[in-house]
Design a protein around this nucleic acid. Structure first.
Lengths: 91, 91
DNA sequence: CTTTAAAATCGTAATATACTGATAAGACGA
DNA sequence: TCGTCTTATCAGTATATTACGATTTTAAAG
């Protein structure tokens, strides 16, 4: 693979994580999956804001949502991100 | 420490890394320290651009520069960043 | 002191990201 | 179908980041 391209891809992943709200969301999701409304209460932010952060994470393949009735439950699917979070938050 | 504050700090580190040029610089510096001119040639970018990326990395405590005569040699000082890079680039 | 090479900083235009209210879409139960 | 709950998307503004030429600073060398 092209080196520049690789840097761009990795930078995209980091950019997706490089926001306090998204870090909070991702860390929360690594432990227990959660729907938007629950996150919203926890973060005290407008619903649209949470939803947009989720869509950024989703578009980068970091999380995935599965519908459960009327809610959508999200989980972290990227192993790379799980490992990065382990390193990032435990030091 | 405050949780929100912790997320903000970590996000700052990620933001500093979340750029293809800076990833390239940091990875290069982990292996062999290097001055701005050498990097500039390697990256094919204007001197001011490289210098500004370096100053972003420096302001976040990721790298440090030591003068060697007329040049300044940079090295990666953050152990956290070294570990993050290991995880990030080897998967 | 003056010159020169290297690196930092400034100014600014272009681009990208963030936030939020309003609205739309999807799923479910009455 | 209608109303409600949940989530997504849109539109607009505000804010931040990026890139790069021009200028300044720094320090070594003469």
């Amino acid at each position: 693979m092209n080196k520049v391209q690789q840097y761009e891809e990795k930078a995209e992943i980091l950019k997706a994580l490089a926001h306090p709200i998204r870090l909070c969301i991702v860390e929360g999701l690594i432990n227990n999956e959660c729907n938007v409304t629950r996150m919203r209460e926890c973060l005290d932010l407008p619903q649209s804001t949470v939803s947009q952060h989720l869509s950024i994470l989703k578009s980068r393949g970091i999380i995935r949502g599965r519908r459960k009735g009327t809610e959508i439950c999200y989980t972290v699917t990227s192993e790379l991100v799980k490992e990065l979070m382990k390193v990032l938050m435990n030091k």
